[in-house]
């Protein structure tokens, strides 16, 4: 064994390996070949075992050749592995292909009831204006529901609230959330900014715009200098928050025995935007709430001095608000709990 023989063997190994690599059909064959040639007990090591028989001068030369051959083989193996690897990956990816146009796995989510959500939304808007929320009983006394609100027995204004009475003497089902005003004014000292959502009841036949049971949200603000102008300013802000910035509003006289002056508050028709259409009775306006300055008699009934304190109250129907916002045309839908209706509010 001399230097030339050894060099030739090394070159031969390189050539054989190259052709074997070319014949390798997958990564596993390449890796087997790599082990066979470059492994600890591989053929390269086998060839180099003859190095010990060489004169000491030639040994570095063989070493240099061996390193070059090793590098060549390593590069060829890596190259072949890359080529075969990507082909294999391609095959795998092809095999794993699915129909991506199929719909996803549905995640079940329920929906919040539009009455409650409308009420919560109103409370959230007024919370931004510093109003705190209270709740009061639904079974009320005649005093709270009527008399303390300046509606004496046999007063013609009682026609505004057809009442359901219960079999507890002096009790009835509240016809509005306004008795909440009395509860709040008797427990909290001014300044007061209160919002009172809740269920109400009326002796009223059920049709597309009336229900025996419905919700209301009452608002109350009392301080030393709270004015009708403040009421108008606040309601404008509310209308913008609820129906959109820039919506026109209308502030006009209304009637409630517990407010003086009393107010009806309209927002421009959300369907036609003003010129008039069937939805707004051709007036261009939709009434969204009633309000007014708390009557001095009511303030006195709650132990507040009307010469010192003044303020306003307002009341609205969350279903009405929801009907306007969501274009719902029948109030009966709110208590029917037809999931085809409720499911739209997710």
């Amino acid at each position: 064994m001399n230097l030339d023989d050894l060099s030739r063997d090394l070159e031969t190994l390189a050539e054989e390996t190259a052709s074997a690599l070319a014949g390798a059909s997958d990564v596993a064959a390449v890796e087997a070949l790599e082990l066979d040639v470059l492994g600890k007990k591989g053929r390269l090591t086998g060839v180099l075992r003859g190095i010990g028989a060489l004169p000491a001068d030639d040994r570095p030369k063989v070493g240099a050749i061996a390193n070059r051959v090793r590098a060549t083989i390593e590069a060829a193996v890596a190259e072949r592995r890359t080529i075969l690897g990507s082909a294999e990956l391609d095959a795998r990816l092809r095999a794993e292909t699915i129909d991506v146009t199929m719909p996803g796995r549905p995640i079940r989510r329920g929906s919040l009831h539009p009455s409650i959500e409308s009420m919560a939304e109103i409370a959230r808007i007024f919370a931004q204006f510093g109003f705190v929320t209270y709740e009061t009983p639904e079974i009320e006394t005649d005093e709270y529901n009527f008399q303390d609100l300046n509606i004496p027995q046999d007063h013609p204004a009682r026609d505004l609230w057809d009442t359901l009475y219960v079999d507890i003497p002096g009790r009835l089902l509240r016809t509005h959330t306004s008795p909440g005003q009395i509860h709040v004014m008797r427990t909290v000292k001014p300044p007061i900014r209160a919002i009172l959502p809740g269920r109400c009841f009326r002796y009223e036949a059920i049709d597309a715009s009336h229900g025996t049971e419905f919700f209301q949200v009452e608002g109350l603000m009392i301080d030393e200098g709270t004015t009708l102008g403040d009421l108008r300013g606040l309601l404008d802000e509310f209308a913008h928050a609820m129906f959109g910035a820039g919506k026109k509003t209308r502030f006009r006289p209304g009637y409630y025995p517990f407010t003086e002056p009393s107010v009806a508050f309209d927002v421009e028709c959300l369907v036609c935007g003003g010129p008039g259409c069937p939805a707004c009775g051709r007036s261009g306006w939709m009434t969204i709430l009633g309000a007014g300055m708390v009557h001095p008699v009511v303030l006195r009934n709650c132990g507040l001095d009307p010469e010192r304190y003044q303020g306003f109250a307002f009341g609205m129907g969350p279903e009405r608000i929801a009907m306007l916002r969501h274009r719902i045309n029948d109030i009966r839908l709110f208590l029917e709990n037809d999931l085809r209706f409720l499911g739209q509010f997710r």
């Binding site: 007061i192 009708l228 403040d230 404008d236 502030f251 006289p253 003086e260």
Partner: peptide, 28 residues
């Protein structure tokens, strides 16, 4: 009572002429 006349003033003068103001009251 006085409040009734206040409403009468507002009503005939026109509620639309009551200037809106954002309430400047003390925070509860």
């Amino acid at each position: 009572v006085e409040a009734d006349l206040a409403e009468e003033v507002a009503r005939v003068h026109g509620y639309e002429l009551v200037p809106p103001r954002r309430p400047p009251t003390e925070m509860p």
